[in-house]
Amino acid sequence: MKIHAMIVEDEQMARKELMYLLTEEEDVALCPSAETGEQMLQLYGEYEPDVIFLDIHMPGISGIEAANHLMNQFVHYPPLFIVTSAYDEYALAAFDMEAVDYLLKPFDELRFQKAMKRLRNQLLQRERKLMEPYVSNTKSGPAKLLIDDGERTAVLSPDMIYYAVPHKRMLEIHTKDRVISSRMTLQELEKKLYGFPFFRPHRSYLVNLNYIKEITPWFNGTSNITLKDMEHIQIPVSRTARKMLFKMFENNH
């Protein structure tokens, strides 16, 4: 699978330089470039690149501000950043936003290769970490879950749960024949289900992998999941999640 990269840079020639360097890499697919931080925020939702090559000094909001914005918005699968700058004064800020690397302009080819290597490693690590709960199928934790819906406590086994989605400040937990509303958060549920085959295809959905019937492509690399027994329900899958989903099925089956 290719690494999707986006360039955020206000200088035309500097964009061209990066484009050139990235097209030389066989495993990189370029998304359209952004010329300002605002434009990046716009384009990100559309393309969800794995990595953003980010210039700091740009008209309007700075690269750092734009990146912080993105990371707050996409907490679950934030993109990776490689900061590109003419000077090293933003190194600390880059460290703060956990950038993969800090490339000084003009780019040194060897240094650029090193940054790409680092990027590949981190993407791999991240994938592994995200898939860990599903890959290692040796389950732990209780076989039954206690879900308090405010009035009574329901006892569920994980394999009864089809999917969960927050709705009006409550968490709706869908089983085959009923919906349980609880005050717990999606994160809390995800934690409780650690080790069971549950996956977040989108920041507000948790799905039982065992009930996935089909994955249908939507637009811009996103997809929808259809579940067994619940064909009327379409669960959105982000582009990043889709990639992982495929990887998971490849590994397990």
């Binding site: 020639m13 500097a14 061209k16 330089e17 003419a86 000077y87 000084l104 302009k105 003009p106 780019f107």
Partner: peptide, 18 residues
């Protein structure tokens, strides 16, 4: 201004090809 200098060098580096 280091930004000016290095950005300019970066520009030149790209222009060599373009």
């Amino acid at each position: 201004n280091p930004h000016f200098l290095f950005n300019t060098l970066h520009l030149i580096a790209t222009l060599f090809r373009e």
